[in-house]
Structure formats: C-alpha cells, structure tokens
Design a protein around this nucleic acid. Structure first.
Lengths: 218, 218
DNA sequence: GCTATCCGATAGCGCCACTATCTATGATGG
DNA sequence: CCATCATAGATAGTGGCGCTATCGGATAGC
C-alpha cells in the first residue's frame, strides 16, 4: 500500500508518518521508484505500536526510537535484548544527592537483598524506585517504606501473571516486542486498576455513594 | 522567611517559585509591605509536594493546580474531596471510537461488576483502563484481558495496604493530601518495583547473569 | 546613604510533537 | 498523450509547556 492508505488505515496523518520515519520510529517504505514507496502489514503494525506507546504509554518519541531499535536488533542473545529494551523504559531524570536519597538507596538495596531479586542497582528501575521513595520521604512520608514488601508481593504477582501470559500466548519472534508492550501498556492497565481499587476502598471506608462525583468536576 | 530563603531551602529557583504562585500551585506569601512577602513552613512543604508531583509523579502544572485546589478545599464532605482529587489524577486524553474501544468498555464494565467495585464508568480511571485495554487489543494483545483478574487481585492488595497505611499514619487534616501523595508517588513506586520484578522473573527464565546489562546501553 | 534583596509584570527560551509548504517526480485515467 | 493527483524528500513553522531573564520601582538592613 502507499502512504495515503497507511494513513487512512491507522488514522495517523501522512506528515506525521513521515516525521516518524525521519525520527527512526518507522522504517521507510520500499521505494518502487524515486517518489513512490510501498508499505506493508509490518508498517501498519509498527505504526499502531508507536501510537500506543505514545498515547497510552506516555513514552517520548526519542525513547520509542531507542526501544524499537532494541526490538529490531535481531541476532543478539535474547536476555540482552530484553535487558536493553527494559533499560530504555525508565523515567531517567536526575537523582538528587541528599539525606533522603541516601536513605532511599539503602532501602532499595535492602529490599533487593530481602527479596532475592536477580537485579542490582545498575537497573534503572532501582534508581526510579529510589527516587520515588526519596520524594515520599521529602513530603513527610518516609514511613511509606513499611509498605515495600506488600508492594513487592503485588509486583511479583503481576510479574508472574505477565510471564505466564507471554509463555502461553506469544511466539518467540514476537517476544521482545511483547515484553515492551506488556511493560508499557501493562503499566497503564495496572495504574488505572489501582486507582479504581483505591476509589472502591475509599468508598467503603469514607464514602456513601458509589462514585463520589456529583457535578463538582471542572 | 523571604522568597530567597524558601528558594535556598527547597532548591527551587526564585523565578520558578514566582511562576508557581502565578499558576496557582502555591499561595502567595503574606505581604508585610507592598514589596515584601513572608513565607512559612506551609509554603516550604507545599513546594516540596509540587516538585514531587512534577518530577516523580509526572503531573502537569495545570493538573497539579487542580489537585491542590481540591486538597485545599476545606469544609466539604471528605469523600467528595477524595473523589474530586482522584478525578484529577487521570491521564484524560481522547478515547477513540472503534471496535477495540467498545470491546474494552465491555471488559471494564464486566470487571467492575465481577469485582463488585463501588465505582462505575464515570470514574476517569475506568476510562483510562478502557483506553489501555483497547490499545493492547490494537497491537495484537486482545487476549491480555485474561489477566485482568490477576491484575485486580494485585490492585486490591495495594489498595488495602495503602488504606491501612493512611489509617495508621495519617492525621485527618492531612488525609486528602496524603491520598494524593499515595496515589501519585505510590504509583511511581509500584511501577518501578514492577519493572524490577519483571527483570527478576526474566532473568530466572531466560537470562544467565543477574543484571542483563553489559555495556550495550547508549 | 548604600547595597542587596524583593515584588510584580512582561517577554523570551528551549524542548517537543507535530504540521505546513514547497519542488520535483511519478502514477493514473480518459 | 496529457491533465490531474499522489508521493518523496526537504525545510520551516506552530503551539504547548515549564521555566528563565530582565526590568522598574520599592524596601531591608547595615
């Protein structure tokens, strides 16, 4: 198909598709003549993935380019691809260097040790966790660390569920892409469900109605 | 204290503090003369909260203004404040209107009914969940819905843990603020832990080393 | 007095995700 | 064969956002 049809099928404007190609998110179409390119199923699929990572996952274009680069990097050991992809899904950002940050680092180290997790501090997710705990501490919720093991229980449940799903449903050649999707979109899924569970729990404790919304929005 | 000291204590530049005041995130200092204002503990605390919601929570400045508006809205029923605050923490964004979106809506409705959650579709989190599931479907992972109950189990665990924490540790007058913090920063905490658990699970299944990172980053 | 600081207001900056426009070329249909 | 349309590729521009710089005038504190 040509770019116009690709655009029609996915709802992504033609100039935006060209922009994604320029940024390396999408491979260029196969040129059949100097100003005519053909796009296939793979392009359509990739385009949908890009939009999902952008709109739902909230990833930045540059981050998507990096992640997809890892996804497409065939002929590397699988666990390296997974690690490379996972490393690019973090928040990044600068870590401060104060007392709270140091305490949070310690808490994370201890958690990893206690859990026997096969990861260490070089994992960007550990840095993200540390930053989040330090932020909690700075706003007066240093005691939140006492929930870490309950959070870890839930996280392990999710990880087991995800791995089982991948094992059941995903072909090897789609594995890296599926892990990216599961990590990014699964995060969005879980975050939404967590907020719903919070509302439910709050309603049971403090609320009366089932929704807590009566025209005060806006 | 004056604005300079507030800046020094929090690490937030003076022009940025003024910007937050303009945007309604931070109440103005109390004027002791036409060009002299005093800031107190409350300002410092609020400023730290703003930075946490911005840097770690990833909220937009306008969203923070809305949420903090609800936090400061004393003299309303508690469950309404909680609802109003929670409603402003969602991703928002436009929902498409295709087959996948319809299927996702149905899946969410069924989930809510199955779980007996005291919430309904007017909850923005439900819309977020639906959007995420529709995105999953569009990238070929419609079967992901089969994990929803495992995700819900985990979400309920987290919600119980959070509520227990609030019950133990938080004074009533800080309740709304703490719920906001718990929702936003707790989300960051859990997301990071989930990624760590994924890495651990992957390492056990596919990997050899404990980290999966050997200089291939960049 | 004198210097550092502050207030409030306005304008500008840098990043980012597009979006518009242009030229040259080729596809398409009568 | 020719008129019209779509396309490739390049460059420039747009709008939103989170700041950041600068300014005039006033006050603090020595």
């Amino acid at each position: 198909m040509r770019i116009g049809e690709l655009s029609r099928r996915t709802g992504v404007p033609v100039p935006t598709i060209k922009y994604y190609v320029r940024e390396g998110l999408l491979p260029p179409g196969e040129l059949s003549s100097p100003n005519q390119a053909q796009y296939g199923e793979a392009h359509e699929r990739r385009l949908r993935l890009i939009r999902a990572l952008l709109d739902v996952g909230g990833l930045k274009v540059a981050a998507i380019a990096e992640v997809l680069g890892a996804v497409d990097d065939r002929g590397r050991p699988l666990h390296k691809l997974l690690g490379a992809a996972a490393d690019r899904l973090g928040t990044a950002g600068e870590a401060d260097d104060d007392a709270e940050a140091a305490a949070a680092d310690t808490a994370v180290e201890e958690l990893i040790a206690r859990r026997g997790w096969r990861t260490h501090e070089s994992n960007p997710a550990a840095a993200d966790l540390s930053r989040a705990l330090a932020a909690m501490d700075r706003v007066g919720h240093g005691a939140f660390t006492e929930l870490l093991d309950e959070y870890a229980d839930a996280a392990e449940m999710i990880a087991r569920a995800d791995l089982g799903y991948v094992d059941r449903r995903v072909a090897v050649e789609d594995l890296v892409e599926s892990v990216v999707i599961g990590t990014v979109l699964g995060e969005a899924v879980f975050n939404a469900m967590r907020r719903m569970a919070h509302v439910d729990a709050s309603a049971r404790l403090y609320g009366v109605d089932g929704a807590g919304r009566e025209g005060e929005a806006g």
